[in-house]
Design a protein around this nucleic acid. Structure first.
Lengths: 146, 146
DNA sequence: TTATGTGCAAAATGTTTGCTCCCCA
DNA sequence: TGGGGAGCAAACATTTTGCACATAA
């Protein structure tokens, strides 16, 4: 494991409250090293295979599912069949995704919701928001100029 | 076909610019009659089977896909395996979904984005927005009080 | 008439599960 | 050492595809 990954890993391990097996360490390691990317289960599998021993697909799905339920991993669906995962760190949390309908690129940004949306939801609908996903479809700068 | 469906149907048919077969009419009919619902491909299949002749699943997927590409049908993914579809009428367009993490209920609302988000996207990222989907996860009034 | 659409069945894809053996705490 | 975890393969659900036949325009 690379040194700079260790403190992040420890931080997550504190939150997980589950047995720390070799496989789970390796999965977390890949997620941390790709903290700015969206990985499919198969991406994770391939990345692990290239650096460590092979681990089973079922283990990846089972682990990711647990991490997702514990709020450590976010599950995304950008419409291209396989679900994508990323670590739910503060920096990744509740950001928006701009998805280009031409080239498929995903750009991240934030700050498009009204500042008082949380209160509005509670008052108007009695709905308590824990998190949200905003997907914006359209055309990125490159594709618009092409 | 029920009488009140005909004007909506004609409106859509004008937009589609594709051969109007028996199967496509029946699919559109079901979508119009359930304009306020989110249907899976299988829901559509079952609804058609109960009122008309059986049509093939492949036809449903192929038709819905075309309608989606033409902007007549919206495809949703609420995280429960099968994709859900609804007509993309003005009333359905760009609304938000509040998804209860306990009971799975989906509530619709709108008006949570900043008024100038379209311009912000264009200026800050050069991104031209055509449409968006905002999914808000949390707990509905019923589940919060239960 | 002919390009397009349909149905069927088979295949592809992504994900989940049962069961046996393994290993972390 | 005991109970949760892993691996494998088989099952599963949803969606896609190839091909022969049917049909709207």
């Amino acid at each position: 494991m690379e040194a700079n990954v260790i403190p992040i890993m420890n931080n997550i391990v504190d939150k997980m409250d589950m047995r720390l097996t070799y496989q789970r360490k390796v999965i977390l390691n890949v997620l941390i090293e790709n903290i700015d990317k969206h990985l499919t289960a198969n991406d994770i599998y391939t990345l692990i295979k290239s650096k460590h021993n092979i681990i089973g697909m079922a283990t990846i799905y089972r682990t990711i599912d647990i991490l997702n339920k514990k709020g450590i991993v976010i599950k995304h669906d950008f419409g291209d069949s396989a679900a994508k995962y990323e670590l739910e760190i503060e920096q990744n949390k509740n950001h928006h995704h701009l998805i280009c309908k031409k080239c498929g690129k995903v750009i991240e940004m934030s700050g498009l919701l009204k500042d008082d949306f949380y209160e509005t939801l509670l008052q108007d609908k009695g709905f308590e928001c824990t998190d949200y996903k905003l997907k914006i479809f359209g055309y990125c700068a490159d594709c618009r100029n092409a």
